[in-house]
Amino acid sequence: MALFGSLFCRLVLGLVIAFLFLPILIVLTVSFSSSAVFAFPPPGFSLRWYASLGKADSLLQAVWLSTQIAALSTAISLMLGTLCAIAITRGMIPGAKAVATFMASPLMLPGLVLGIAFLQAARDFGLRDTYTTLLIAHVVITMPFIMRTVLASLSLFDFAMVDAARMLGRSYPAALWTVLVPNILPGFVSGGLFAFIASFDNYPVSIFLVDVRTKTLPIQLLNQVEMSPDPTVAAISALLILGTIVALIVCDRLVGLKRMASI
């Protein structure tokens, strides 16, 4: 009976993994198709769709915009989210637990609700610049990732270690760098990675804030699929998958995936 249960669990696990990875494998395969339309299995092998990316100005502009927004929002969220997590952990603000729950609320609300709220708020405050509106919205979206992961890193940290380092001759900044930073590094890096991906791939909020000249990559890809679908979309999706794998490898070398997964 135990053997049957083990085999059943492995079968279910294999089916779940196949369900998750099969769409990715299909996209990767279609990106090398010689056909001018989405066809699986592809009739032949070709790199034409990767070569055409260099001429797809609208896609390249969207990639550049999404990269800027994701990088800036992640950098701002890393600073604000880390400071907020330290303040909550040290009890520097009243109602710290309520504040922590409130800060995580963007992760609990539907993206469409957030998008409509940001659109209305931008109108009420007279904010007409699309780039600035997108950046502010993405900071709100990404900061909970940073705060929650850094909070998890700080949950077992004893701030008396910072005072001990200062008693041993370290300056306050040097004590923070020597004692605090190594302890929050896994949460800092993993939170930054998740925040960047969440911002780069965000669709439900961005759709309400973009305009004709300012479109993030998910919005541009959707427009291209609707207007002129071809395997170029699969090619750029494959490059995004490759970028995600490279980011995970870098994080594994810097922090370690097992340590990141324990956050």
Rank of each mutant, 00 (worst) to 15 (best):
residue 110 P to G: 13
residue 28 L to F: 02
residue 60 L to Q: 06
residue 196 F to V: 07
residue 79 M to K: 14
residue 68 Q to E: 11
residue 198 A to L: 11
residue 131 Y to T: 05
residue 213 R to C: 13
residue 27 V to C: 08
residue 261 A to R: 13
residue 69 I to R: 02
residue 98 A to Y: 00
residue 147 M to F: 05
residue 91 G to T: 06
residue 259 R to Y: 11
residue 125 F to D: 06
residue 184 I to P: 04
residue 231 P to Q: 11
residue 245 I to Y: 02
residue 102 F to V: 10
residue 46 S to V: 14
residue 57 D to S: 15
residue 12 V to E: 06
residue 108 M to K: 13
residue 214 T to V: 05
residue 7 L to P: 12
residue 29 T to W: 00
residue 98 A to F: 01
residue 2 A to P: 13
residue 233 V to A: 02
residue 57 D to K: 11
residue 260 M to Q: 14
residue 237 S to F: 09
residue 226 E to Y: 04
residue 169 G to F: 00
residue 89 T to V: 06
residue 34 S to K: 00
residue 71 A to R: 05
residue 1 M to R: 06
residue 163 D to L: 12
residue 40 F to P: 03
residue 92 M to E: 06
residue 4 F to H: 14
residue 5 G to F: 11
residue 101 T to C: 07
residue 169 G to Q: 02
residue 16 V to Y: 06
residue 157 F to H: 12
residue 238 A to T: 10
residue 103 M to K: 01
residue 101 T to N: 13
residue 177 W to D: 10
residue 205 V to T: 09
residue 184 I to R: 05
residue 100 A to I: 01
residue 133 T to I: 04
residue 227 M to R: 15
residue 229 P to R: 13
residue 258 K to P: 14
residue 196 F to Q: 14
residue 163 D to W: 12
residue 146 I to N: 01
residue 23 P to A: 06
residue 210 V to M: 12
residue 25 L to D: 00
residue 222 L to S: 06
residue 123 R to I: 04
residue 58 S to K: 09
residue 251 C to W: 02
residue 147 M to I: 07
residue 221 L to N: 04
residue 168 L to A: 03
residue 79 M to T: 15
residue 14 G to W: 04
residue 1 M to S: 08
residue 234 A to P: 13
residue 40 F to M: 01
residue 220 Q to K: 04
residue 39 A to V: 00
residue 17 I to L: 11
residue 125 F to P: 01
residue 226 E to G: 10
residue 52 S to C: 03
residue 132 T to P: 08
residue 33 S to W: 01
residue 231 P to E: 00
residue 22 L to S: 12
residue 252 D to L: 10
residue 63 V to K: 06
residue 222 L to D: 02
residue 147 M to L: 09
residue 76 I to W: 12
residue 219 I to N: 07
residue 51 A to T: 09
residue 214 T to R: 07
residue 263 I to A: 03
residue 87 A to G: 07
residue 241 I to L: 04
residue 118 F to Y: 01
residue 3 L to T: 13
residue 245 I to T: 08
residue 40 F to R: 00
residue 56 A to F: 08
residue 260 M to S: 05
residue 197 I to N: 09
residue 232 T to W: 07
residue 257 L to T: 15
residue 178 T to V: 14
residue 1 M to G: 14
residue 141 I to C: 00
residue 46 S to C: 10
residue 48 R to M: 08
residue 120 Q to T: 03
residue 76 I to N: 14
residue 221 L to I: 09
residue 21 F to H: 03
residue 28 L to S: 02
residue 196 F to C: 15
residue 21 F to P: 03
residue 200 F to G: 11
residue 17 I to N: 09
residue 179 V to L: 11
residue 54 G to A: 05
residue 225 V to Q: 00
residue 91 G to F: 04
residue 212 V to G: 11
residue 35 S to H: 07
residue 192 G to S: 12
residue 9 C to G: 13
residue 189 V to Q: 01
residue 238 A to I: 04
residue 179 V to W: 09
residue 57 D to P: 09
residue 213 R to N: 02
residue 26 I to F: 00
residue 122 A to H: 03
residue 75 A to F: 15
residue 215 K to W: 14
residue 190 S to Q: 10
residue 37 V to T: 08
residue 36 A to D: 02
residue 226 E to N: 09
residue 85 A to R: 01
residue 82 T to H: 10
residue 229 P to Q: 06
residue 243 G to W: 11
residue 221 L to Y: 03
residue 185 L to W: 02
residue 136 I to R: 00
residue 55 K to P: 07
residue 34 S to N: 01
residue 170 R to H: 08
residue 136 I to P: 00
residue 211 D to A: 07
residue 183 N to P: 07
residue 187 G to R: 02
